[in-house]
Computed example of a mutant assay.
Amino acid sequence: MPLIHISLRAGKPEAYRQAIFDSVYRAMRETLDVPEDDQFMTIAEHEAANFRYGDAYGIARSDDVVFIQITVFNTRTSEQKKALFRPTAELLGESPGIRPEDVFVNVLESAKENWSVGHGLAQFA
């Protein structure tokens, strides 16, 4: 039950943004055993004045950098989370063509009782 928020600079065409959705979803299906059709994702586009990044950690990023924040149940193993990073960068490299240096991923954990996916119920508590 991941919840994904993706941020990037404004101006990319719809097909580019849809390719990001598809690639991130595929990486999660392959590494986190995400069920089919479990797609809860947003993309927020930011004007240049509202989007900042740097070359910290020895990585030369470009204006095409994407920030991907994935919130998951706190039941995922460290191995599963680490296994997610490389395929995400590889698949985004294939489509829509984002350089691996421009793929910034953050995984957040949340206890199952913190989720309601509809009807005001705590389905996983």
Rank of each mutant, 00 (worst) to 15 (best):
I43K: 09
L108R: 12
V34D: 00
S78A: 11
N74S: 14
M28R: 02
A111V: 08
S7M: 13
L92R: 02
V117Q: 09
L32M: 14
M28A: 14
R86C: 07
E45W: 04
R86F: 09
R76W: 03
F73T: 00
V117L: 15
L108H: 10
F85A: 09
T75M: 07
E101Q: 13
L108D: 07
A49N: 05
A15E: 15
L108I: 07
G97N: 09
D33T: 06
S23M: 10
S78I: 02
F124V: 06
L8F: 09
F73D: 01
A89Y: 01
G120T: 09
D38F: 00
H46L: 14
Y53D: 04
E14L: 13
R26T: 07
R52M: 13
D33F: 00
S110R: 15
D37V: 09
V117M: 15
P87M: 13
S7D: 15
D64L: 06
Q39I: 13
L84Q: 04
H5I: 13
Q80D: 03
V105I: 15
P87D: 02
R29D: 01
K112A: 07
H46I: 05
V103A: 06
L3P: 05
L84C: 08
A83F: 00
I68T: 02
V107S: 08
R52I: 11
R99G: 08
G11H: 06
E45M: 10
Y57N: 11
I6D: 01
A44Y: 09
S23E: 00
S62E: 09
R76G: 00
V117C: 11
F51Y: 13
N114K: 15
G93K: 01
Q18C: 09
E47N: 14
Y16H: 14
K82E: 07
K12Y: 10
M41E: 09
L32Y: 04
I6C: 06
N114I: 04
A122L: 14
R9F: 07
R99V: 03
W115L: 00
G120E: 00
A19K: 12
V107A: 07
A56C: 07
P13A: 07
P2D: 02
R99A: 15
Q18H: 13
P2W: 00
S7F: 10
A111H: 12
F67T: 05
S95I: 02
L108M: 10
D64A: 11
D63N: 12
R61I: 04
F104N: 05
Y16R: 12
L8A: 14
S7T: 08
P35S: 11
I43Q: 11
R61P: 01
T77F: 05
I68L: 11
Y57F: 15
L91Q: 02
A125C: 10
I20T: 06
A125K: 15
Y16W: 15
E45V: 09
E90P: 00
K82Q: 12
S110P: 06
A111D: 13
E14I: 10
